[in-house]
Design a protein around this nucleic acid. Structure first.
Length: 424
RNA sequence: GGAGCUGUGGCCGAGUGGUCGAAGGCACCUGACUCGAAAUCAGGCAUGGUCAGCAAUGGCCAUCGUGCGUUCAAAUCGCAUCGGCUCCGCCA
């Protein structure tokens, strides 16, 4: 969440930002509730001060009737406090819930716009692949080669589940390792994370685990959820800690399964591996000083580019429009790889996403560092996809298909797969 | 899953219901001594909120895993819950 003390001091800015993101947040109501909350809290603190004072008077020995009078006074204070505290906890919970819906500030250079199309392509790399034959999509290729099985996935687990099979299994593991090696080269500490996290962590990261529009699977009766990304578990790692400034930046990379409900995410773009309920992903995560986060954000993007250009894939980089930023994101860059089987004659499809969430998540999760002046400040937190195995697989299979339906393994992966071709 | 023990500040660790935001130690910071360092000595050293003040700072409130309760008063008593440890059972 943002700093609620800024609700008034940066009122215009917050209001404009909510508008630029096409969000529906009633800032004035939130401020009104904040006032109600503060007023009530003052009353309560007053009462508590009187209660404490009253209790202090009773420490030593005294006449029985004096003590009785003090006890009576204490009881009266206690009753009054109890009723006000009940009121307070209601308004406090309401205010917190509302305050959480206020999005992070946006980077001044982030393009302002409502949706996908308003995002800005800031870089193109490589030429979209053209074939002397009509290219197939990854579903046709994968099923024909018996390396992807969507039918069995649907039968056993439901729509949008799938089996990876035969050489695609080795290929996926090779891709994981390939991406991991590049990320490690840049000084990240590797993790395999839990695939489950507590709701409290989800909320701190900025995910909403509840409601019809939630993309998160919750596990009934446990207060936990299946993670949609390792961003959640890597970001929760340092919850409630004060980090040593000299330990920053902390760079982590985590491999996890990712589970997404994708309610209502149907249509032609969601066929096959592109939009699924479960996939594996290697995620990067950075905790750093506020003044470093812009630079680290660019570094995350550079690593993502290194990974995808290393596979010989054409892609473009997109600076995400404000309306398409998640609430915690201050700025977001996506890499969209060329996918020959997408749409009519190929299209770019999102394969990575990196966000600078500044102190938005750190404030909710209470992750801070002690600065040189002794003050404790919130760290900045950033995340980025190293490789989402399912979508990277789409790009790879479709770009490296041959006319006979076989797939050539890109040079950079051969040392990990041990074979250079997948064929029938 | 069953039984027992345990959870205190950055770390370790004391704590009889009221004088406990909490002894002591370590770490850290400042000063003295020293050419300098070590050792020693003196002092300082939790976080968040709020009010007053230009500020240094001061008042008040909250926090001893978390929640609820008992009480005029809770780190201290009770219940629940979560984490850790030990033993038993089960198991990749």
């Amino acid at each position: 969440m943002i700093d609620i003390r800024e609700l008034r001091t940066r009122y215009d800015e917050i209001k404009a930002n909510i508008q630029n993101r096409w969000m529906n947040v009633d800032l004035d109501k939130i401020i009104a509730d904040q006032d109600k909350r503060a007023e009530l809290l003052h009353d309560i603190e007053d009462l508590r001060a009187r209660r404490n004072e009253n209790a202090k008077k009773m420490k030593g020995k005294m006449e029985a009737d004096v003590r009785q009078a003090l006890i009576a006074e204490g009881k009266a204070l206690k009753d009054e406090l109890a009723s006000k505290e009940a009121l307070f906890s209601e308004i406090d919970a309401l205010f917190n819930e509302e305050a959480r819906t206020i999005p992070n500030y946006a980077h001044p250079e982030a393009p302002i716009g409502k949706e996908d199309k308003d995002s800005l392509a800031i870089k193109f790399h490589g030429e979209p692949k053209r074939f002397p034959f009509k290219p197939k999509d990854h579903v046709q290729l994968g099923e024909a080669l018996d390396i992807l099985d969507f039918e069995s996935g649907a039968k056993v687990a439901g729509q949008k589940f799938y089996y990876v099979k035969n050489k695609a299994v080795i290929l996926q593991m090779a891709m994981e390792r390939y991406a991991m090696d590049i990320v490690l080269k840049h000084g990240f500490t590797p993790f395999i994370t839990p695939d489950i996290a507590k709701e409290e962590i989800l909320q701190g990261i900025g995910f909403n685990p509840r409601g019809a529009e939630s993309n998160i699977y919750t596990i009934e009766g446990t207060g936990t959820c299946l993670v949609g990304t390792a961003e959640i578990t890597l970001g929760g790692y340092y919850q409630n800690t004060i980090l040593d400034k000299k330990d920053l930046p902390i760079k982590m990379t985590g491999l996890s399964h990712c589970f997404r409900r994708e309610a209502g995410g149907a249509g032609q773009y969601s066929k096959g591996l592109y939009r699924v309920h479960q996939f594996s992903k290697l995620e990067m995560f950075i905790y750093c000083l506020p003044e470093q986060s812009d630079d680290f954000h660019k570094q995350l993007l550079a690593i993502e580019e290194e990974i995808f250009s290393g596979l010989g894939l054409a892609y473009r980089v997109v600076d995400t429009a404000t309306g398409d930023l998640g609430a915690p994101a201050y700025r977001k860059f996506d890499i969209e790889a060329w996918m020959p089987g997408r749409g009519e004659g190929g299209e770019y499809g999102e394969v990575t996403s990196t966000s600078n969430c500044t102190d938005y998540q750190a404030r909710s999760l209470n992750i801070r560092y002690r600065d040189d002046d002794g003050k404790i400040r919130f760290v900045h937190m950033l995340n980025g996809t190293a490789m989402a195995l399912s979508r990277a697989m789409v790009a790879l299979i479709e770009n490296y298909q041959n006319e006979d339906g076989s797939i050539t393994i890109p040079e950079a992966l051969v040392k990990y797969t041990g074979f250079d071709r997948i064929e029938k």
